[in-house]
């Protein structure tokens, strides 16, 4: 099997007495969508934050493209190709869509140490930015201020920013939350197209979407990984049915 792009190795992180993430080991392989599910408060977002470098683990390590990145900061990991979206959309609200995405191009290529050229006239930045905008399904919305976007469009903008990084993997934290049936279906189709380009670790609540999209599913409950397998295996797993699917049904 191909070498995983991401490996979380016995990652743990507590907040006070709470073990938010408890010895979680998890892999993301090339070409797959790996879904991460679990009830609210299970530690999914914390796990994403640990992988992205926003939170320091108490124990364990993160391997990105085979390299131990545990000591690297968020920006460094992003430049290695870790693209992510946030559970609560996180963009620069005063910027236009194009500026937001150009910022991501800046981060992944060339850096910030140009003082002279006007960024928005720099084809080396706006070209890839427009491409990412089109890939995320936001064509024609480039000049709209991010603050004026609909909820669903803001989600797509985040995906466009992640794509502009030329990511080697994507971490998407509940990208479909609050999108409505139609929006979620559209986003599902987008993720499905992306799969061949970049593997995705997908945190998602929508079970239909999860089972339709993902190659593998891991289940987190109270910080612990309680099951991992194909969609069919997970559906059949008694533990999972008890802690999670049972609740949802």
């Amino acid at each position: 099997m191909a070498e995983p792009v991401l490996r979380a190795e016995r990652l743990s992180r507590g907040f006070g007495a709470l073990r938010a993430v408890d010895e979680v080991t998890l892999e993301l392989r090339p070409g797959e969508i790996h879904a991460l599910i679990g009830p609210n408060g299970a530690g999914k977002s914390t796990l994403i934050r640990l992988i992205a470098g926003e939170v320091r683990p108490d124990a364990g390590q993160v391997l990105l493209l085979g390299r131990d990145v545990s000591r690297l900061d968020v920006a460094r990991r992003a430049r290695m190709g870790l693209g992510r979206t946030f559970q609560v959309s996180s963009v620069a609200p005063d910027f236009s869509v194009l500026q937001n995405v150009a910022l991501a191009v800046l981060g992944s290529r060339g850096g910030v140490f140009g003082l002279w050229r006007n960024v928005m006239r720099d084809e080396a930045l706006t070209g890839p930015a427009r491409e990412a905008i089109a890939d995320a399904g936001l064509s024609g919305r480039g000049s709209v201020p991010a603050a004026a976007l609909s909820h669903g469009e803001r989600r797509k903008l985040e995906i466009a920013m992640a794509l502009a990084l030329q990511p080697r993997l994507l971490l998407l934290d509940e990208p479909m939350a609050g999108m409505g049936v139609e929006g979620a279906a559209e986003l599902g189709a987008l993720l499905s197209r992306l799969r061949t380009r970049v593997p995705i670790l997908l945190v998602e609540h929508d079970m239909d979407a999860v089972f339709a999209l993902s190659d593998r599913v891991s289940v987190l409950a109270e910080g612990r990984l309680i099951a991992s397998g194909t969609g069919a295996e997970i559906r059949a797993d008694a533990d999972v049915r008890r802690v999670y699917l049972g609740e949802a049904a």
Partner: peptide
């Protein structure tokens, strides 16, 4: 506007 976002696109 958003330091978290800036870091997440690779800029410190």
């Amino acid at each position: 506007q958003n330091r978290q976002r800036l870091a997440a696109v690779g800029i410190r």
